[in-house]
Design a protein around this nucleic acid. Structure first.
Lengths: 217, 217
DNA sequence: TTGAAATGGTACTTTTCAGTACCATAGACT
DNA sequence: AGTCTATGGTACTGAAAAGTACCATTTCAA
């Protein structure tokens, strides 16, 4: 009943012993993710999951304990790939403006994907009853991006490329600023943003941010 | 079944003829709002609404047509009071920095209220199936705040208090920047932000923003 | 006062769905 | 090969809840 008491010993224990079990679990997770994203958690029945993934009810309960357990597993797995790999190698070889544009573009273009939007919806909706979902999401998404940016800021400062008053605060501010209202609009209007528009949006934001945040000599 | 085909003639027609009908409708709307915010739409049964509001099933279906009709009515009514009244009279008598701090503080302190967070959750979750909800929310919340700010920017520029390159873009950027990650954290950690911390956060954001956005002479 | 309309309350229908039980079967391990 | 565990598949149970029907009761208008 509750999301929190995973008393069943099996739950969240990804020790699927056999290869077959592993592949079955994977199929179930993928099917469940698709359906949750498309229909929402409440409107997805286990019958639909089974229809899509194959397998049987029994297996699902064996592996995930309950429908909520399945949700937790789905979210946990998806969190790992929310951001994907951010290209951070060459940042220090660019001017800071270009580096920030590159980071923001990578981050935000992922963020406003229909798939990520749907995932965000799912997490927001269900984290009312399962706060851990929200925490996982924060850690895997915004906080990770923020940490990457903060590392870059420190390195750029050490290299004398950038003078910031407070890299931690700047890192907390930057992505939110660059995101602007794009995320909102992507959620509520089906407002497709093409690459050029996104780029322009980000350039303006980066310029304002840099001018505002950099310490003047 | 669908959210969109409100074929029933009664729905969204707030012509409750009698005073009694009006007060009954109000009670139902309030009860439903409380329950939707607390439990979510899917987990709120009409029995619970009736238990809280009094009245009968019959009346609800007469007035709102269906459970979705009730949701629509609830969201529509709540949208009107999302922002409430923003204090905008004396903005032009303040230095721009103080004016922006005042606006941001009013806006964001409302935004991170548990109640608004819950409302945001509700809209995000249900706007998958009922896009109009999202549009209404955008118009009543972010877009309205943005319009107010934009008007202020224009007035302040006309009065020579402020030099902005593009007041529309600045208005789109400002609140997102001032909000920063506070909204996120309010949603996913139960992270209470006291007034002083919020104030400090906003001051820093306003200073960076002003320095970045103002045209230098 | 009287009659029509709206409302309350209750019981009912029907559907959907989570979770369980059980048996047959396919894979894996010795 | 032979045993044993995990899995597939099916059927079932019980509960929850949306929507309907119906009658009693209250409200309101003429």
């Amino acid at each position: 009943m509750s999301f929190t008491d995973n008393t069943a010993a099996v739950v969240s224990d990804n020790t699927a012993p056999t290869k077959r079990g592993e592949s079955r679990a994977q199929a179930v997770l993928e099917a469940a993710l698709e359906l949750f994203l498309e229909l929402g958690f409440a409107n997805t029945s286990l019958d639909k999951v089974i229809e899509k993934a194959g397998g049987s009810r029994r297996t699902i309960y064996q592996m995930f304990g309950s429908k909520e357990g399945l949700l937790q597993a789905v979210v946990k797995e998806s969190c790992d790939s929310i951001l994907g790999q951010l290209e951070t190698d060459k940042l220090l070889d660019m001017p800071p403006r270009d580096a920030l544009i590159s980071l923001a573009e990578q981050f935000i273009s992922r963020l406003i994907t229909p798939r990520r939007i749907a995932f965000y919806r799912l997490v927001v909706a269900e984290s009312t009853h399962a706060p851990e979902l929200g925490r996982q999401f924060m850690a895997a998404g915004p906080e990770r991006a923020q940490a990457i940016l903060c590392n870059y800021f420190r390195a750029a400062m050490a290299a004398g490329q950038l003078q910031l008053d407070n890299p931690e605060i700047s890192a907390r501010q930057f992505f939110e600023f660059a995101r602007g209202d794009l995320h909102f609009h992507a959620m509520f209007d089906n407002h497709y943003v093409d690459g050029a528009t996104l780029r322009k949006h980000i350039e303006i934001a980066v310029d304002v941010f840099l001018r505002g945040a950099e310490v003047r000599n």
